[in-house]
Design a protein around this nucleic acid. Sequence first.
DNA 1: CAGACAATTCAATAATTTTTGAACTATGGC
DNA 2: GCCATAGTTCAAAAATTATTGAATTGTCTG
Lengths: 174, 174
Amino acid sequence: MKPPSEKTAGRRTSRPSFEPLQPHEIELADFFVRMAGILGVPRSVAEIYSLLYAASGPMDFDQIQGRLGMSKGSVSQGLKFLRDHEMILSVKVKGARRERWQPTPSLAASLVTLLRSQVLPALELAQPSLQRILEAAQKKDASPEVIERLGRLNRWNTRALELFPLLLPPPAGS
Amino acid sequence: MKPPSEKTAGRRTSRPSFEPLQPHEIELADFFVRMAGILGVPRSVAEIYSLLYAASGPMDFDQIQGRLGMSKGSVSQGLKFLRDHEMILSVKVKGARRERWQPTPSLAASLVTLLRSQVLPALELAQPSLQRILEAAQKKDASPEVIERLGRLNRWNTRALELFPLLLPPPAGS
DNA sequence: CAGACAATTCAATAATTTTTGAACTATGGC
DNA sequence: GCCATAGTTCAAAAATTATTGAATTGTCTG
């Protein structure tokens, strides 16, 4: 259910209060939310990214929480996700204690990091399994057609694993 | 775990009973389930596809239900999904009433259909929104940086829409 | 056409994922 | 060191998504 009351300056559960989202900000968020959904990225994460994307400058924790009206926990986890996938950067403003966030320069690069983190582990995990499965099929009755299919799957997986680092170079650190 | 009887014993609300999945079938299902998960395809759908993928011949409704131990509803919906995305084909066996299913020859083509169905609508829906958002930003204060970002997003979306039909030609019918 | 068989539909339920917020930890300034 | 501020953690609640199966619809066969 929704919170029971509607006070913009509500004292009940203290939450920083900022200007609500403008229509065009909502529309942009819808876009990012939908795109993120395809890759299983939660709404709250997409909303944070969207807000930063259309912001005129870096924003801090409380501003994000206030504008989006979400919980501290969600903001914290959302920023962590975006950080981990190198989709946002923190900007140090001298004299200010709080961190301020802005989107990484290249959205393309961000998507790449995101994809990598989802697909690569699956490919790696699959490699030995697919090998075993193919061998099991060969050892048993398995029709030539099935063997052919499994072989192809295997080769694909291997090639994908080889190609991935070329196409999407890993972050500088490793 | 396993019901003791093997024949089509159950008349009332019971399920067709077939040989349980072999270890290598489970392993393959794990692979497909994981991959499907990335695109938000439900487990049951991936399991059905996986079963057909490693089957020595086309399978019918009851065989699928029996081997996977899932409900009629799930099998029906799963087959519908796979049909709609052109990932399986029905094979007519003369004299037999039931339809029998097998995977489409090319898994690559299947993935393409899947991707198309997820991404294309999102891109199409976004087009006018992004346009409006950019205009709104230009009309208002919006920093040059934000305008630049939104413009790039816009161009990307447009290009993606143009490229999609080239890269992934639509099904024969249209 | 009746009856049996095949599959679909969809409301109810189950499973999973996301969000919340209060307690907690970490850090900077004095 | 101490206090205030900044952010994290995680168990519980809420929201979302998937599965089930009884009722229903469609359809082949004799």
